[in-house]
């Protein structure tokens, strides 16, 4: 069985819990005392991931780090529909990779702002917030133009991909870093669509969609 080294309040760990829930895969959780215990910097954990970061998974003897890399792995191996990471569609794979990198940018800005405000990390808070707003503006426009063309998701497909999962958590948690989403209506509509995907689960700080419409 897949083992996930996990911290409840981590948006990057949540990405994997979310995909595994969408795919209906069981997994085992090893809780890591990220805060206040800093267990991800402990000697035993650094042997698992020398970068000292969550998440990490172990599956069939394979140890893998980095939320985006693990999304690629899990979707490639465990999604029989081939939709979350369509391996036979080069253009779509390129798009997905582009937005996975964008998700890393969201982590570096919106997640950093949240770590600063909630867990007292010594980051430049103004730079983190400004950086997040710049990325949110770009994504909001991209989603808005997509909606005009009948596209509901980040990439050019009629279904969500791992790019949607990778971008979702730290956008949803952005207010905890002092980054409101009022000015990004297309992002808010997209967040609501993500919450209505069958199998959606929450984490602390993320609430389910209202009952206005049945889940797809």
């Amino acid at each position: 069985m897949i083992t996930l080294y996990d911290y409840e309040l981590s948006g990057n760990c949540y990405k994997l819990r979310l995909l595994m829930s969408f795919l209906g895969i069981d997994h085992k959780t090893v809780p890591i005392d990220f805060y206040p215990g800093r267990e991800h910097k402990s000697e035993w954990f650094l042997k698992l991931n020398p970068l000292g970061q969550l998440p990490v998974i172990e599956d069939d003897g394979l140890i893998l780090r980095d939320a985006q890399a693990i999304l690629v792995y899990l979707a490639s191996k465990y999604d029989p529909s081939g939709k979350w990471y369509p391996r036979d569609n080069p253009a779509l794979l390129g798009e997905i990779s582009q937005w996975l990198a964008f998700a890393d940018g969201i982590t570096a800005t919106a997640s950093a702002a949240r770590l600063h405000d909630a867990l007292f990390y010594d980051f430049d808070i103004d730079a983190a917030r400004a950086g997040a707003h710049r990325l949110f503006r770009i994504l909001d426009e991209h989603l808005w133009f997509g909606e005009q063309q009948g596209r509901d998701w980040i990439c050019s497909a009629a279904h969500p991909t791992i790019a949607d999962i990778a971008c979702f958590p730290y956008i949803m948690l952005s207010e905890e870093g002092g980054i409101p989403r009022q000015d990004y209506p297309a992002i808010r509509r997209w967040c609501d669509r993500v919450k209505r995907i069958k199998g959606f689960i929450v984490m602390s700080g993320v609430f389910p969609a209202g009952p206005a419409r049945a889940a797809a």
């Binding site: 809780p31 267990e39 909630a118 207010e175």
Partner: peptide
């Protein structure tokens, strides 16, 4: 329960309250 499991339980609860408090 290990310390970290007990902490995680309470952090999960508080993490759910946080957006409510902040709004």
């Amino acid at each position: 329960s290990e310390d970290k499991v007990i902490k995680r339980f309470q952090q999960t609860i508080f993490g759910q309250d946080k957006p409510i408090l902040e709004n």
